[in-house]
Nucleic acid binder design. Structure first.
Lengths: 141, 141
DNA sequence: ATGCGTGCAAATCGTTTGCAGGTTG
DNA sequence: CAACCTGCAAACGATTTGCACGCAT
């Protein structure tokens, strides 16, 4: 069994919830997507494979996946929520184009280290962070 | 006349648009808010002062303010769009204690420079950024 | 058997749009 | 007058919720 599914199962059990076929299918599909996705993406991909899961179930499952640390909501300008799975993915930050909504992922080791330093300076224990650069992407500027 | 209003007037003129009473009131109110805001915030604040402006007008004015560089859309998780005015603000970042909610403002010149570098690497024009460290403050750890 | 889960359809919420009347140059 | 603006109400699209039935423990 894959770590993501194990994690999810443990999380659900700890909350007295169940790992149903639908939740399993949704998780499996999400783990196949490397990059951002929307609710509709999952729905269409599953439907294309004749896997029967309603959009409602996807909407209801996503918060559970976020809560269990497998999936993250990513920042966005648009109305539609975007997500990405986060297991086995190194941490990265985001640039969001305020014009077209494009999201560029990047990561910078030195920035991470400076954040740690800033934390120390204020005796603040950093448990997580989120850096978003907003601006114009190459095509929109 | 304040620079923001001048900027806006120039922008509008360049597009053949007009600086109406409504647009002026909206801009004035936005410039008073130091931090982020939502459409409804502006609406309620104006209404409380008996200034008559419809939500529709706010929705229609915000893109103009963004386009003219006075206001920025800030990335967000929620459904509601959030904005902030961007003129004449020194930038700072935040540490948020997840236990007591305390917010520590800090700024770090070297982090800013590294961000600029990262932007250049992707040919991304950075107009704003937002760094949030979440964790435990001195007293809560 | 007891709840939790499901899909559907209706409801909700933020935002956008069509329209009729008002204002500006 | 032509073009822009406004407020209202209706439309819209993403998400949430109420409900009746189904399924897991």
């Amino acid at each position: 069994m894959k770590p993501a599914e194990q994690l999810f199962r443990d999380y659900l059990k700890s909350k007295g919830l169940r790992l149903t076929r639908e939740r399993e299918e949704i998780l499996k599909e999400i783990m196949k997507i490397h990059g951002h996705f929307e609710v509709e993406d999952i729905y269409l991909r599953l439907r294309r494979k004749k896997v029967k899961v309603s959009q409602t179930s996807i909407y209801r499952t996503l918060p559970l996946l976020v809560e269990s640390g497998i999936v993250q909501k990513t920042p966005c300008d648009r109305m539609k929520a975007r997500y990405e799975h986060v297991l086995g993915h190194r941490h990265h930050d985001h640039m969001v184009c305020i014009k077209c909504g494009r999201i560029i992922e990047f990561s910078n080791e030195r920035i991470e280290r400076l954040q740690e330093e800033a934390g120390k300076k204020y005796r603040f224990e950093i448990l997580g962070h989120r850096l978003v650069l907003s601006g114009l992407c190459e095509e929109c500027r």
